[in-house]
């Protein structure tokens, strides 16, 4: 465990808790893409199946369990408890356009042709694109609430820190995982445009809105 990964994980945790808290506190999930949240839920469930097969550390097990629980709670709030506030007519990204190609790719490009490994690979690929419905929704409505922007910023920071972590691990531990690194870089690139808007607008106290 290095500092980049720890801060990255904490940033990831902060992001998902922030989103859950915002929905709970405002009793509304307006502006939040339920489709992105379903895909993140799928990411955690398919990746953390190893909770049942091997033990790494208390930290690892706890974080995995929290991620799965928070993801399921978020999906529940969006699709059940606060369904009336869900902005479904702006959340129009087709999930199958991501899940089907990503599933195909996981079958073709993986480390080992076993069920757990293919599901792990699927989750890595899916995570890299799971935020697209959320970004698409923001581009459709032309704006995002400030807390949603903070959520995206914390989530993007986690990805960026993971890249630094991989550079560190490559140099100091000789570890690298090509699948995780390529997918992680793709994912981070998707946040770049958003990062720019966040720094130029939200950090100066303005709401994130896109130029008309």
């Amino acid at each position: 465990m290095n500092i980049f990964r720890l801060v990255g994980d904490l940033s990831h945790l902060l992001a998902i808790l922030l989103l859950l808290w915002k929905i709970w506190k405002t009793r509304s999930c307006a502006g939040v893409s339920g489709k992105s949240q379903i895909m993140f839920g799928l990411v955690y469930i398919t990746r953390y199946l190893d909770l049942f097969t091997n033990f790494i550390s208390i930290y690892n097990t706890t974080m995995k369990a929290i991620f799965i629980a928070v993801a399921i709670a978020t999906i529940y709030l969006i699709y059940f408890k606060f369904k009336a506030t869900y902005d479904s007519n702006h959340d129009t990204f087709r999930m199958e356009f991501l899940i089907v190609p990503v599933g195909g790719l996981a079958f073709l490009v993986n480390h080992d042709f076993t069920a757990l490994e293919i599901l792990w690979t699927f989750s890595i690929y899916l995570e890299s694109v799971a935020i697209l419905p959320q970004l698409f929704m923001i581009s459709k409505t032309g704006e995002a609430e400030t807390i949603t922007s903070h959520y995206l910023f914390a989530l993007g920071s986690y990805r960026a820190l993971y890249i630094v972590n991989w550079v560190y691990r490559y140099y100091f531990e000789g570890f690298f995982d090509l699948i995780a690194i390529v997918a992680g870089c793709v994912q981070t690139i998707l946040y770049c445009d958003f990062f720019y808007l966040y720094v130029t607008k939200v950090m100066h106290g303005k709401k994130l809105s896109l130029p008309a």
Binding site: D9, D50, I56, F67, D112, Y162, F175, F176, D177
Partner: peptide, 10 residues
């Protein structure tokens, strides 16, 4: 395998 699989990461 040829790659080190970082299963300890989240």
């Amino acid at each position: 395998s040829r790659y080190t699989i970082l299963k300890d990461e989240l």
